[in-house]
Simulated assay, not measured.
Amino acid sequence: MDLRARFTEEMKASMRAGDAPRTSTIRMVIAKLKEADIAARPSGVTAIPDDQIAGMLRGMVKSRRESVDLYRQGGRTELADKEEAEIAVIESFLPRQMDDAAMQAAVAEAVAETGAASIKDMGKVMAALKAKHAAVLDMAKAGPMVKAALGD
């Protein structure tokens, strides 16, 4: 089942269950998806593909994590808890992320594939990782691993 269909089915299920916070978060995701589809129309795309949807979801999670930090610093734990609940719902639609061992292996493979020898080749390695593992690799964690593999 593609992500769009999953959003619809999950929203129906949460509405039936009376889970208002989950329903609200899924509606927010669907609205963001419609916004992304509209933004992609000028380039001739009527509906963005699943890999771009996953990127959109990761962006939503990232902004909520930043909000959680700010709310915690400001002593607004109720708002931080609400954001964390939204993060959990959004992450339920994302594919499982690679663990550290798998990330190390993917980085080593990308370094070997690109023939990277120094830190100057970091961009090539990151591009290879993104092309091959974008959906399941946290690029923020991959950066330092690539840097370490290339010898700082």
Rank of each mutant, 00 (worst) to 15 (best):
G18P: 13
G18H: 03
D19P: 11
D19Y: 01
D19V: 06
A20L: 12
P21K: 08
R22S: 13
R22E: 06
R22G: 06
T23L: 11
S24F: 00
T25S: 12
I26T: 00
M28E: 10
K32C: 00
L33K: 01
K34I: 10
E35N: 05
A36I: 09
I38E: 14
A39G: 01
A40I: 08
R41C: 02
R41L: 00
R41I: 01
P42Q: 07
P42V: 07
P42W: 03
G44Y: 04
V45E: 02
V45Q: 02
A47F: 05
A47V: 10
I48G: 00
I48Q: 06
P49D: 07
P49A: 04
D50Y: 11
I53N: 00
A54P: 00
G59S: 05
G59F: 05
M60Q: 08
M60N: 05
K62A: 08
S63W: 11
R64V: 02
R64I: 05
R64C: 05
R65S: 07
R65F: 08
V68P: 05
D69W: 04
L70Q: 15
L70M: 15
L70S: 14
Y71L: 13
Y71T: 01
Y71Q: 07
Y71V: 02
R76C: 03
R76W: 07
T77R: 10
T77F: 15
A80I: 04
K82M: 08
K82C: 04
E83N: 09
A85M: 01
E86I: 04
E86R: 10
A88P: 05
A88R: 13
E91R: 08
S92R: 04
F93T: 02
P95N: 02
P95Q: 07
R96L: 10
Q97S: 03
M98R: 14
D99A: 09
D99V: 03
D99R: 01
D100R: 01
A101G: 06
A101I: 10
A102K: 07
M103D: 03
A105D: 12
A106I: 00
V107A: 09
A108G: 12
V111K: 05
E113I: 13
A116C: 14
A116E: 11
A116G: 14
M122S: 13
A127T: 14
A127K: 15
A127S: 08
K130G: 11
K132E: 03
V136F: 02
V136C: 12
L137R: 06
L137W: 09
D138G: 01
D138R: 00
A142M: 12
V146E: 00
